[in-house]
Design a protein around this nucleic acid. Structure first.
Lengths: 350, 350
DNA sequence: CTGTTAGCGCGTTCAG
DNA sequence: CTGAACGCGCTAACAG
């Protein structure tokens, strides 16, 4: 730890040691062809000797671009977000950008602050999975840099976004249950103010209509925010005199809460839901999961953003909406309502 | 998107609009007391009107400190690392630092490059979970900034680190199996070149010695890197004429691979291992898991680093080693060797 | 092939 | 209470 506060050798220091000006050092480090081999070597030697590292902060100030883009997510511990982040990272790296990550920790109200922070650090663009329904702060952000939304559509904003086939996936999974004869399917959903919540309910509902089955409103529980709330809601439903014969869950955490509820209640019901998760294939439960590639959402979002950064000076292209496909996967035993006991586990169906 | 390349209003622009110098703007934004209320208001009005945001890049250049620390991990998609990252984030935020995250994506050879990148961006410190056994690049990094290691001890380096009770946890969990009468316990481990791998094997071995049981070398498989390799190794072991009656796994991915192997082999064996994971409690398998708080590793590492940053000018304190405790948790049915069929599932024991 | 000048946006220092 | 000068480390543009 040689570094004094703000310390470390500068190009000047390197130049002095190599007997050249700072400018020449800059050229060497940039691989500028117009430098004699002799000086190149002297410069590199000096760089090595001093342990010199070019100061990217000063560099981006001078160049007027940080090479950095910001990603805002709510909860890195949720594999959906960490996967998405990895997808973003991957594409950014290919294009020579770096990622600056901000995590709201499920505190929706922190999002505007984090966005501002990223702008203060002069990210050149922003990818956001908006946590709440208010997006005014994103409109503000768009005054500074392009913004791409991931997994949620813009609300009162004109910008690119990457969406999952929420409606389609929910409809298809629900249809599987209906096809097996279920007519009392409970719906366990996140807050309907969230796009995904609303859209997945719509798919759930549409599947019912197409089967001529009337959804039972008493079996619909929305506003669930985590596994714990989902578990409680599911236990209540299972306790009903006229309970459900199957469950539909709008995301991985809700599915896991519901599964725990089934376990505690000592019963087994077919469960459909969004998001595949670890070990889902060996739980021995009849699962119908809507799977999709969270990495791909991140990759696509990054591509949209980078493309838009390319057109910075030109007329901005019309805003685009990309969709990532879903796929229904079925695990465990499947049959007609009133299935078997927890734990009978033939190998996976799909 | 008003921003030209490198664009956006500056303090000068704000100052002109507010009829003051840039200096005064700077003072207002810094909450410097020596500014009249009237000008304050004019400045804030101008800031609002222009959507001005202070340029943190220029700021850190001038101040000689970026307020940023770097975190290097191998795989964000592994909950261990994402949790650790959240813990780091939490403490940094409390102290007014920001985090810059780099992910090697399991490519050990990329780690030095990522570390350099962070130094180029003038992080003031580094928290690293070293992926390989070579740490020379970290010694280089220490010439520039303080480095704290997480989950692995320094090798040929003199610096702070935060460790898990690897030995103790492995010994305790293994002892549980031995106490139940198991004498043929398989060991499924990550590469022994990794500290955790070696240490956990040591604990496994110690427990055997203490019970007077001779470990069977043919049941020890090391060098497993993910769930897939673990699954294959476990299947091989299960296929042995004199197979194991229980399994010990050194991390969550290996446990999951082994569990999948048990499932495919249609058998049930007690399994002990490091890391708790989602739904472990309802698998209905006899599990003995060594649990610990990954967030806490991150928090402690961040505290060590921040403390060290406080002593920047003084004599650096001797390097410290902090340990995060483990706790053994047992799930599912437990009894004597030759247990029950997959799927008999009374409620959790602990 | 190499050096000089100038300035990116900001804050410290010192004068008013 | 406010402003001017200077420099953080780097590089584009222009000399030589």
């Amino acid at each position: 730890m040689t570094a004094r506060r703000g310390g470390g050798p500068t190009m000047h220091d390197v130049g002095r040691l190599a007997q050249v000006s700072a400018m020449t050092v800059s050229r060497v480090l940039k691989n500028d062809p117009g430098v004699s081999e002799a000086t190149r070597e002297r410069v590199f030697a000096a760089v090595d000797r001093l342990g010199y590292r070019r100061n990217e902060t000063a560099r981006s100030l001078r160049l007027g671009g940080s090479g950095m883009i910001g990603l805002v997510v709510t909860n890195l511990a949720n594999p959906f977000y960490s996967r998405l982040a990895l997808g973003v990272q991957e594409v950014l790296t290919e294009h020579g950008f770096r990622m600056m990550l901000s995590n709201t920790g499920e505190q929706t109200e922190r999002e505007p602050g984090l966005v501002d922070g990223l702008i203060d650090h002069r990210v050149e663009g922003l990818i956001v999975v908006p946590a709440g329904s208010r997006q005014q702060h994103l409109a503000d952000a768009m005054r500074h840099v392009p913004v791409v939304l991931a997994a949620r559509p813009p609300a009162g904003l004109d910008t690119d976004c990457v969406l999952v086939e929420d409606f389609h996936g929910a409809r298809e999974a629900t249809a599987c249950l209906l096809a097996e004869g279920h007519t009392r399917i409970a719906f366990l959903g996140n807050p309907p103010a969230l796009y995904t919540g609303a859209e997945r309910l719509r798919g759930f509902w549409a599947a019912h209509e197409e089967s001529g089955v009337e959804p039972d409103n008493t079996l619909i529980r929305q506003g669930l925010v985590d596994a714990a709330t989902a578990e409680r809601a599911a236990l209540e439903l299972l306790d009903l005199p006229e309970g459900p014969t199957a469950l539909f869950c709008t995301n991985n955490r809700i599915s896991q809460g519901a599964i725990r509820a089934l376990y505690k209640a000592g019963t087994t019901l077919p469960l459909a839901g969004f998001d595949d998760f670890d070990l889902s294939d060996i739980l021995g439960l009849p699962l119908t999961l809507v799977s999709y590639d969270a990495d791909e959402i991140g990759r696509q979002a990054a591509r949209l953003l980078i493309d838009r950064l390319g057109h910075r000076d030109a007329e901005p292209p019309a805003s685009r909406r990309v969709t990532v496909p879903t796929r229904v996967i079925r695990y465990g035993p499947h049959g007609h309502p009133g299935g078997r006991a927890f734990g009978s586990t033939p190998p996976p169906t799909a």
